[in-house]
């Protein structure tokens, strides 16, 4: 993993300050959605080899949830944006 992460709020910080929550590409279904939709959301993972979007919590910094794009093979980190900004951009 890249050793340094650029947090949009805190600047360049060591990656040990972050806790990784997991896949950020999933979209939470509506409460009334089908069991199958909820099953897929809770349990099924694309588990990509290559680029992936993840929720990272900046535990030892701003305590914001970020959406980090990185590579699961090379461990290169491409970007880190605030979760709210990411959601707004995706119009969720």
């Amino acid at each position: 993993m890249a050793s340094l992460i650029t947090c949009p709020h805190c600047g360049v910080r060591p990656k040990e300050e972050f806790a990784i929550r997991g896949d950020a590409s999933l979209i939470r279904p509506a409460p009334t959605a089908s069991d199958e939709a909820w099953h897929d959301y809770v349990y099924v993972r694309a588990n990509p080899r290559g680029r992936t979007l993840e929720h990272w919590h900046h535990v030892a910094g701003c305590r914001r949830f970020l959406v980090v794009e990185r590579d699961t093979v090379t461990h290169e980190v491409y970007s880190a944006v605030d979760g709210v900004v990411a959601a707004r951009e995706a119009q969720r």
Partner: peptide, 13 residues
């Protein structure tokens, strides 16, 4: 290590 990975190597931390 705590993050998803297809690399057969880990982190120093």
């Amino acid at each position: 290590d705590g993050y998803s990975s297809y690399a057969q190597r880990g982190n120093l931390a």
